[in-house]
Design a protein around this nucleic acid. Sequence first.
DNA 1: GAATTTACATGATACTGATCATATAAAGAG
DNA 2: CTCTTTATATGATCAGTATCATGTAAATTC
Lengths: 191, 191
Amino acid sequence: MRVSREQMAENRERILETAATLFRERGFDGVGVADVMKAVGLTHGGFYGHFTSKDDLAAQALGRAFANANRWTSEAKAADPQAPLQAIASRYLSPSHRDDPGHGCPVAALGCDVVRQGGASRLAATEGVRTAIGGMSAIAPGETEEERRASAIASYATLVGALVLSRMVDDEALSDEILAAARAALEPTQQ
Amino acid sequence: MRVSREQMAENRERILETAATLFRERGFDGVGVADVMKAVGLTHGGFYGHFTSKDDLAAQALGRAFANANRWTSEAKAADPQAPLQAIASRYLSPSHRDDPGHGCPVAALGCDVVRQGGASRLAATEGVRTAIGGMSAIAPGETEEERRASAIASYATLVGALVLSRMVDDEALSDEILAAARAALEPTQQ
DNA sequence: GAATTTACATGATACTGATCATATAAAGAG
DNA sequence: CTCTTTATATGATCAGTATCATGTAAATTC
């Protein structure tokens, strides 16, 4: 049956957000079109009225996930203007982020999947990473702009790598140790 | 038809190595049992004489990939005893490693896939990561053993994160920049 | 060298999942 | 209020894939 224009827009929105979460939780191949639609409360057939294909959805959901996650940077700056990098690290490397991939960093959750993804998804990821680096550069230490940018990239890499490692291991103590070590490495070096 | 005992062992070996490469290139879900067997030059039916299931193969292939990759640490120590960490970084963050996931670091290639994998694969990964951290600790800077270990974990995370990011982006200049920034961050801080 | 074992080939089977064709009922236009 | 449009539901199709049953010929064994 038909729904109102407004309802349809909301449905599309929910499909996108739900997909963004499910993909991060189970990977692109671990989620079917029907799974997403069911989670939203619709049936699989209607999907193609909103998106042209699963790949299309994947690309847009990835863009959404990046947009949500990249907001963390400005939130950190607002929360702790003195040490925004530590604020980000603290949130990014927290057990709650580790244990909830569905609402966290798309790079840590889908990074290696995206590498094998074609076209639109790769573009969305490239744009997302570029934006993330830009945002981190604004809060990274360093005299020159180049220094800050290089430092931002390195910090970003450390965050991503540590989170992936902490999620991989099947040993909570080791997992916590990894998070703590990365947090420590991102503290300002007060020689 | 039947093959010699020796030939059978070699076949099993080739299945394992081929799977380790294909999984890293295309992900666990991107490779079928038939794909692996075909790449080895056998047919899909014989597979279950060597492994009990695809999951079994995945776990063993992951273990093999870790074993191969963890050898890099000792190779770096042998190649450049003065600066083994820089030797590893140089190899790990090279364009050739970035462009050949099939023969590289299993964390960067399969990290987020493993997180969703159950049982045996998770265990193999945990063991592999533990060994990697142990190997890196031996060449990490620091006064105490704890310092070296924490530093090793952070360096490992930076390597992994940078490689994943460099593979994700669809822009060679940005990709190279990421590799260079991470390499720079791993240089000894000669304050 | 005959008897037995077995690694692999062939060919089901059963299931999942992406996509599409068609139907329907409700929204929006007049 | 009627007519037209269309968002979604239902159901089918088609392809891919893990796993298993059975056959066969070559390697071991005695």
